[in-house]
Amino acid sequence: MTDLLELAIAGLMSGLVIGLAALAVTLVFGIARFANAATGDTMTLGAYATLGGTAATGSLIAGGAIGILAGAAAGVIAYATVFRKLERRSPVAALLASIGVGFVIRAGLGLVYGHGQQVFQLPLVRPWRVWGIRIQPTDLEIAAAALATLAAVFLILHATPIGRQMRAVADDPDLARVSGIAPRRVMIALWALAGGVAAVAGCLLGIKTVVAPEMGWDMLLPAFAAAILGGIGHPVGAVVAGVLLGIAQETATPWVGFTYKIALSFAVLLLVLLVRPRGLFGRIEGVR
């Protein structure tokens, strides 16, 4: 029982990372209307930038801020150079282009940092024991950072003018245009926000595990699965589904083994698409 609870806690941790990645996917989908396959590699970029920033400044907080800025900048640059030009084309063109953007980021990081694994040099802390369950203090900090990021995103979406305009464009882009909402500014804000969120996800994943050029790409499938399970374009859904998926993956490990837990994402993805394409929080998006 304690083992299972510890697995569930581990699942919650990876679930928060998946949830953040899925949030980045679903934000882009809701407004730019395509599945952004470069999300994973933006995560990786965020992790490396945080690593570099931490080494340069000696502070993990400052490093994280640098990582977020790098992710946001990557998002905006990808939009300005690639996705803006594909706006009037089919979503498939944008999806394929995003695979290319991801490849460029991944290859660039591999070139600069090599393909070896790097780790965050954090002081070792003895885990706490609560009713016999081991809890890592680092995990609590990671969870706090994830929750703070989620809170910030939802505050931006629901309590600021730019967030309101982002939701308006997601709702009806044509109506937004004739209401005088400038699409360009909304898109730039969207890509900065999605890039920043992806960077936080990558940074937390890097702290929890290791930093390697493939780390983000490997997270893409669970992130897509969570975004679809949560109802594509639905931010709250993405996060909830990400956490559910993370817990399911980890707690399934005793039965399916470590190697196959990722297969659970496949299964969830297929099942949702077949049975309930609207996802858990059900509203059809992107059909207009």
């Binding site: 003018p161 730019i162 305009q165 804000a189």
Partner: peptide
């Protein structure tokens, strides 16, 4: 609106 930019927020 000044708050249309993300930075202004």
């Amino acid at each position: 609106q000044a708050g249309e930019g993300l930075l202004a927020v």
